[in-house]
Computed example of a mutant assay.
Amino acid sequence: MKTTSSIFRVFLFLATLSFLGSCDKDSDPTITEPDLSAVEESLEVMQITEDMDYFTLTVLQSIGVNGRILNDPFEKICAGVSVDINDDQKIITIDFGDGCTSPSGIVRKGKITITYNQNFLFPGATVTTNFIGYEVNGLQVSGVRTLVNQAIDLVNNQITLKVSMENGQVTWPDNTFVTYNTDQERVVKLGASGYEISITGTANGQSREGFPYSSTVSSDLIVKQDCVETGVLIPTAGLMELNYRGFQLTIDYGQGSCDKTILITYPGGTKEITVD
């Protein structure tokens, strides 16, 4: 009888442990949402970059082989912008002055200089962009951005560009800043209704809080001119992986809709946000 009682007590003890373990497992807290500040900062940088590409391509497409302006589309960049093309020195100066506002509400100020060795439609063409007191919506931009025409496909009317940003920096009004370097390939398809850009590549840098980050495009990012002109300065499709503070985040830009909604997936959850 004593032996049976002992066995019963052991069984009851093990059953109790099992029950408590089950309850503890069921009550595990949800994994805390990771720091998404780097995502927001990378989106700010991306919007500045796509805005820059928009008016850079607008200017470059307006120049003939001999440096003559074939058309004058600059008012759609912003009213009052000054574009000076010196084909002898192969330098273009885009001067936004003390500030001008685009039709989509983007405020730019300062200057950008574009140095080129030949018409950018020719393979081997190199276009280098420098910034002089340049700001977008109050954010200061510095660094050196280089585009190299690697190939042109006349059948499909597209250009393959090698694009890099060295010593890139975006500074906020409170003097905090993001640094970034990029190594990308951009396939620009030109059409009657505007361009479409397919982007692959990597980026890395430091956040405003001083932490390193890196990102890789895992599914081509798609940027469309008609979306950019309405103020949608982020890709309309594609996936990007972002590594920051021990987390890997996936940023899903959608399936082609011209909107500012993205889906962020992180270990343990997802979050949909709308880009300002």
Rank of each mutant, 00 (worst) to 15 (best):
G64L: 06
E44W: 02
D98W: 01
Q47A: 11
S142E: 15
C78M: 03
K109E: 15
D98E: 14
V136H: 02
A38L: 01
T93Y: 09
V107I: 15
I85Q: 09
D35Q: 04
D72C: 12
I77A: 03
L36H: 00
N86F: 08
R68A: 14
D26Y: 03
S102D: 13
L60N: 05
T128M: 00
K76N: 15
I63R: 03
Y54M: 12
P123N: 06
T101F: 02
Q61L: 13
L121E: 08
V59G: 05
E41C: 07
E50V: 15
G110E: 10
G64V: 15
K109L: 14
L121H: 10
G64P: 12
I85H: 04
V141R: 01
D88S: 11
C78D: 13
V107H: 04
S37K: 02
D28Y: 06
P29Y: 04
V141P: 03
D53V: 12
G80E: 05
N130I: 11
D88Y: 04
V59P: 03
N117T: 10
F131M: 00
E33C: 10
T30M: 01
I69F: 15
T56L: 05
Q47H: 00
D95M: 09
I77S: 05
S62T: 14
R108Q: 13
G124E: 10
A79T: 07
D84I: 14
G143W: 08
G133T: 12
D24N: 07
T56N: 05
F131V: 13
K25D: 09
G143R: 05
F120W: 14
D24V: 15
P123Y: 05
L139M: 11
T113E: 04
T58D: 06
V39C: 02
F96R: 03
I94L: 05
V136T: 08
A125N: 07
G97F: 09
Q118H: 06
F74K: 05
D98Y: 06
G64A: 11
D28M: 06
Q140K: 13
N119W: 02
P73R: 01
D51V: 07
I112H: 07
I85T: 07
K109P: 10
G143S: 02
G67M: 10
Q140I: 15
M46R: 03
I92E: 06
S102K: 06
I77Y: 01
L20V: 13
D51W: 00
G99W: 08
S104M: 09
I63A: 02
T129M: 03
G105W: 06
T58G: 00
L17C: 10
S27L: 12
D28G: 00
I92A: 04
V141I: 14
N117A: 08
V83I: 15
L17D: 03
D72L: 15
G80P: 09
A79Y: 09
Y116F: 15
I48H: 01
A38H: 00
I85S: 01
C100Y: 05
F19W: 11
T126F: 01
S42Q: 10
T101Y: 05
I48Q: 00
K25A: 11
S37H: 04
A79N: 11
L121I: 12
K109Y: 10
